[in-house]
Amino acid sequence: MDVLVTAAFAFLLGGILLRMTVFLRRPQGRGVQPGLPIRGGRLGLVEALLFRRLWRDAPSLWLASMAFHGGLAALLLAHLNIAPHLLRAPGAAAMIGGLAWLLGRRLVLPAMRRISAPSDFLLLLLLLANALSGAAFLWLVPGEMSLLVHQGLGIVLFLVLPFSKLLHAPGIVLSPSRRVLHD
């Protein structure tokens, strides 16, 4: 199983690199640039870490996104054996809470349901299943079986992530609109 997980992880990294070639393609103007001359809009990395646009325009979405992504980051560190005992419980709580919120708003708000495809729900469910199976293995039903389920779901996630909208961080940093018009 460990071999499979490692292979899937390698696939994940390869997939991300492959997709980056699409993101990194120079946006060549077709004459009129799509850039938005927004003050202070140049710092894509800051935006990718703090989601300032969401903070300004959609605070509840910001909170849910922050909780989910923060929890995910904490759990990634824990998986790498960095302060696992400190990070696991709050990370899992934040990730599960954030995901539940994201899923809930997509299900409950008519505007969100309308713009969602089945894959939008399934991807959230996949992430949630990963988090819940990990939590179950740690705290509810420890054992071989739980670990296998969690690892299996992890493999599916690694295979899907690079080729779905789940890979969206590079888009924030590399958006053509971020090129400031003023030269």
């Binding site: 946006p27 060549q28 979405l61 708000l109 713009i115 969602s116 495809a117 969206h168 958006s175 053509p176």
Partner: peptide, 19 residues
Amino acid sequence: KQPDLRFFLNACVKCGACN
């Protein structure tokens, strides 16, 4: 011809911020 357009067609995560 227009990688910008390709990006715009691919990048949406349906977050609803533009609703």
